[in-house]
Design a protein around this nucleic acid. Structure first.
Lengths: 344, 344
DNA sequence: TTGTAGGCGTTATCAG
DNA sequence: CTGATAACGCCTACAA
């Protein structure tokens, strides 16, 4: 009697297993007293239904899978926190797998999750959304339908693929406008990982912001990066070598911005006096950098929760339109008016 | 024909389902050609075994659960990364649930995971290890055994409860010794969450370090905290108000240290000249703070992997002794020789 | 080496 | 409202 089951309860309650099953799932057609009696018995016996057996017949595992690039990235972690909370309060378990920012590993991870028969998939920062087109089609979940895929921060559109994202371009553009209004005319950009859609969108927004403010979009102002601490750190030297030297820089994310701040401090470059720095994501650490970092806030936990809602909606067969949230600039001390001679 | 199954393959291959089953799991007693033929067919049909059905009969879900205090904590995230990688490469899925640092939620989370029938549990930074004594006993997994619980950074000892941790006391003590050798005589401590075992151990190590270096362990030098950015931030004022004023401070973790660094910069307190700061965890950000933070490195990913190994070992019925890893001080610029008049 | 039959714990479809 | 009975997909004695 390893695990007490529904038939054990049935025996003790002098009823059939089906009755117990019905009592347990609040089935309408069962007499209140019977149900109460059975529920009490189950409670007292410490009965826990076998999700596995249930899944086998219902075709649903009540788990959703999350493919994340890297839990170690604060942005990802905060989104994941929202996902976990929403999933669990909806009675769903959360299975995670990491892609380490690699498209191939991303598919491996997704496949592993699908093999564990998650009901749906949430992908945080996909690098290979095209592949999901094939994946779920050949892998059907137990209910016989394809597992819905919710892309977070990716606008890929396809049947069975949903999306929740932030208006990256708009926010990046707004950040450039802010800098322009502070008098900056030479604004550099530390780009994100090539292949990431949010990278492209933020870059596009940066360029849009420049032209909107009548500033020339110069290719040499764009530095490569991958959204990591090191990228910002390394960007400083390049920034310093430019002529004219940029007085402001927008970073793909806060991590890069923090790396840049560290390099600036090390090199004796005063922020914001000699260089204004703007990040993106507004991770919690950004309020504690030196100086505190101006950043674009993304509703990270809300995005995670929205992704779960979208996923559950899709699972229920309800329409689940793409969600686009908007970023908001949080002004802190890393940005200031331009002090250089050639500023407006 | 929602999902292609073992009997579909059997029909097409003109064999019985059991033969297919055997071929799929590399059973010894099956002719090579049959196996090859079946494997090819399965491959070509895109067959994926139903983990659910398999679990129902084998009693194992091939998933392990992780209860984490908060994925947003960099230390936790890095450990989790190790856990995920080890779990997945062992063919295990990883189910996570957050406790938000609350003992009650921790048990809810653990229960949710156990309800999803994870084979084992890994708890990162437990606040209520006593409860696991009861939990797994009443909840047995499908195999009829209790699910092993691996406590990370907690030395609770009990049958069925395993542990992987770092020598917190030793490392904290070593950190104090380092500060003492730099000439500091008034060393404060920003404590971690009450209720966490690592908090207690680090505090104990701090006290041991003081006495080992013939410094008086004064209660007023110990500040409350919970291992978050705000705690370090708020600690500064208290530190400044002390007489004699401490010239060095050891923090429960890097997050608190980073908050302290921010507050110091804001208040014009030079680090390390006026105040030396030491963190704990050596999260990746700590190399990029201003100044870079001296910290106690913990082998975070390795601890995560060790936890998985321990869990699998327990699952296999093999002995899985407690693992204690050691920390190592990473010297950076946030610590320096004491410059005050009353230093040695 | 291969096939047959039974069962894992639950839900669901029928009758009663 | 309740009780048999048949799946769900797979594994595993046991038999051939």
């Amino acid at each position: 009697m390893a695990h007490i089951s529904i038939v054990d309860i049935a025996r003790l309650a002098q009823v059939s297993p089906s009755t117990v099953s019905r009592a347990l799932q609040n089935h309408p057609r069962i007499s209140p007293e019977r149900r109460a009696e059975i529920l009490a018995l189950a409670e007292q016996l410490g009965y826990r239904p076998s999700q596995v057996a249930r899944s086998l017949v219902t075709g649903q595992t009540h788990t959703i899978g999350a493919v994340v690039s890297d839990v170690t990235d604060p942005f990802v972690a905060e989104v994941l926190k929202g996902v976990e909370s929403a999933a669990r309060s909806a009675g769903y378990g959360l299975l995670i797998a990491m892609s380490n920012r690699d498209p191939a590993q991303e598919m491996t991870a997704a496949t592993a999750l699908l093999d564990h028969q998650v009901d749906g998939l949430i992908v945080i920062s996909s690098r290979a959304p095209e592949h999901y087109r094939q994946l779920p089609r050949q892998r059907e979940n137990l209910a016989g339908g394809v597992a819905p895929v919710v892309l977070l921060n990716h606008g890929y559109s396809e049947a069975g693929v949903y999306s929740v994202r932030v208006d990256n371009a708009g926010a990046a553009s707004a950040a450039v406008t802010l800098l322009s209004q502070l008098g900056h005319r030479h604004i550099a950009f530390v780009a994100g990982p090539t292949g990431g859609q949010s990278s492209q969108e933020r870059l596009a927004g940066y360029l849009q912001g420049l032209t909107a403010n009548r500033l020339p979009p110069l290719p040499e102002l764009i530095l490569q990066g991958a959204g990591m601490l090191e990228d910002g750190w390394e960007a400083l030297a390049a920034l310093q070598a430019m002529r004219p030297r940029p007085t402001a820089v927008l970073c793909y994310n806060d991590l890069a911005a923090i790396g840049l701040l560290a390099a600036a401090a090390r090199a004796g470059v005063n922020v914001p006096d000699a260089l204004s720095v703007v990040g993106f994501d507004n991770i919690s650490l950004s309020a504690y950098t030196i100086p505190p970092l101006t950043s674009v806030e993304q509703p990270k936990a809300a995005m995670g929760k929205a992704a779960v809602r979208t996923c559950l909606r899709a699972l229920a067969g309800e329409p689940a339109p793409p969600i686009v949230m908007s970023g908001q600039i949080i002004l802190r001390a890393s940005t200031g008016v331009c002090r250089q001679s050639d500023c407006t």
